[in-house]
């Protein structure tokens, strides 16, 4: 009986200790686990200078500009506060479109735009058929006007 309780206690203590340890470790590491910076953070100069980093934001409506006959695309990322102009040449993911959340990997150039060599699309957790989305949009549009 007693030995069993001791073993239970020991396991409990190990678990609590490990849990606390990991929590503190993760809190300390929090900054580094961030996968991307927002345009506001970029504007505030938070990303390390001269190093490659990721910017995440929404593609501004009407900002996508494709160079004809080339893979090069220009677009602007926003977090509804600040914006970052991005230049990218390559294949865009299927979910890339205006208003979509995007993460671009690259570095800042002299002229203040972001030169990306990788563009990833971030999507949300919502799934619905197109008809439902249409009706949602109508309801939304109606309430706004």
């Amino acid at each position: 009986m007693k030995a069993r309780h001791q073993r239970l206690m020991a396991i409990g203590l190990v678990l609590v200790g490990l849990g606390l340890g990991t929590t503190f470790l993760l809190r300390a590491m929090n900054e580094n686990i961030l996968f991307y910076y927002s345009p506001s953070q970029v504007a505030a100069g938070e990303p390390p200078e001269g190093r490659r980093f990721r910017v995440g934001g929404l593609v501004v409506n009407g900002s996508v500009d494709r160079v004809p006959g080339d893979l090069e695309v220009h677009f602007v990322l926003t977090d509804n506060a600040k914006t970052v102009p991005v230049v990218y040449s390559g294949i865009l993911p299927d979910l890339f479109r205006e208003g979509q959340g995007i993460i671009a990997h690259g570095e800042m150039t002299q002229d203040g735009s972001f030169r990306a060599d990788e563009v990833l699309a971030k999507h949300d957790e919502n799934y619905m058929p197109p008809e439902v989305e249409d009706s949602l949009k109508q309801v939304h549009g109606g309430s706004e006007t």
Partner: peptide, 12 residues
């Protein structure tokens, strides 16, 4: 691969 545009990222 088709949706995000990559096979793998080192996110959390």
């Amino acid at each position: 691969k088709p949706m995000w545009g990559t096979w793998w990222v080192w996110d959390a």
